[in-house]
Amino acid sequence: MLKLTNVNKSYENNKILDNINIVFPKNKTTVILGPSGAGKSTLLRSINLLDQPENGTIELDDIKVNYNENLSNNEILQLRRKSAMVFQSWGLFPHMTILENIIEGPTQAKNENKDQAIQEGKKLLAEVGLEGYENRYPSELSGGQQQRVSIARALALKPSYILFDEPTSALDPELEAQILHLMQKLALEGKSMIVVTHNMDFARKVADKVIFLEKGQVIFDGECKDFFNNNNQRIQDFLNAMKF
Rank of each mutant, 00 (worst) to 15 (best):
Met1Lys: 12
Lys3His: 14
Leu4Val: 05
Asn8Ser: 14
Asn8Phe: 13
Ser10Cys: 12
Glu12Gln: 13
Asn13Met: 06
Asn13Phe: 05
Asn14Thr: 14
Lys15Gly: 01
Ile16Arg: 02
Leu17Ile: 08
Asn19Lys: 15
Ile20Gly: 09
Ile22Phe: 13
Phe24Ser: 11
Pro25Ile: 11
Thr30Lys: 06
Val31Tyr: 00
Val31Arg: 02
Leu33Gln: 10
Gly34His: 10
Gly37Cys: 08
Gly37Tyr: 10
Ala38Met: 09
Lys40His: 08
Thr42Glu: 06
Thr42Gln: 04
Leu43Trp: 06
Leu43His: 06
Leu43Arg: 03
Leu44Ser: 06
Arg45Gln: 10
Arg45Ser: 07
Arg45Pro: 03
Leu50Ser: 10
Asp51Ala: 09
Glu54Gln: 15
Asn55Pro: 10
Ile58Glu: 08
Asp62Cys: 09
Asp62Ala: 11
Ile63Ala: 11
Ile63Tyr: 12
Lys64His: 10
Val65Lys: 08
Tyr67Arg: 03
Asn68Pro: 06
Glu69Lys: 15
Asn70Thr: 13
Ser72Asp: 09
Asn74Ala: 14
Asn74Val: 13
Ile76Pro: 08
Ile76Arg: 09
Gln78Pro: 00
Arg81Asn: 13
Lys82Met: 10
Ser83Gln: 12
Ser83Glu: 09
Met85Tyr: 02
Gln88Ile: 06
Ser89Ile: 12
Phe93Thr: 09
His95Asp: 12
Ile102Thr: 03
Ile103Glu: 08
Gly105Met: 05
Gly105Arg: 04
Pro106Cys: 11
Gln108Pro: 00
Glu112Thr: 11
Lys114Thr: 14
Ala117Asp: 04
Ile118Ala: 00
Lys122Arg: 12
Lys122Thr: 02
Lys123Asn: 13
Val128Leu: 08
Leu130Trp: 01
Glu134Pro: 06
Glu134Lys: 02
Asn135Thr: 11
Asn135Gly: 01
Ser139Cys: 01
Glu140Thr: 01
Gly143Glu: 03
Gln147Trp: 07
Ser150Val: 05
Ala154Trp: 01
Leu155Pro: 01
Pro159Phe: 03
Leu163Trp: 03
Phe164Ile: 01
Asp165Leu: 01
Glu166Thr: 01
Pro167Trp: 01
Thr168Ala: 05
Ser169Gln: 04
Ala170His: 04
Leu171Met: 07
Pro173Thr: 04
Glu174Lys: 14
Ala177Glu: 13
His181Tyr: 13
Leu182Glu: 02
Gln184Asn: 14
Lys185Arg: 10
Glu189Gly: 00
Ser192Gln: 00
Ser192Pro: 00
Met193Leu: 05
Met193Ala: 00
Val196Gln: 01
Thr197Asp: 00
His198Asn: 01
Asn199Trp: 01
Asp201Ile: 11
Ala203His: 02
Arg204Asn: 09
Lys209Cys: 09
Lys209Phe: 09
Val210Trp: 08
Ile211Lys: 08
Leu213Tyr: 05
Gly216Asp: 06
Asp221Glu: 14
Gly222Glu: 12
Asp226Pro: 10
Phe228Leu: 11
Asn229Ser: 15
Asn230Pro: 09
Arg234Trp: 03
Ile235Ala: 06
Asp237Phe: 10
Phe238Tyr: 15
Leu239Met: 14
Asn240Gln: 15
Lys243Leu: 13
Phe244Met: 14
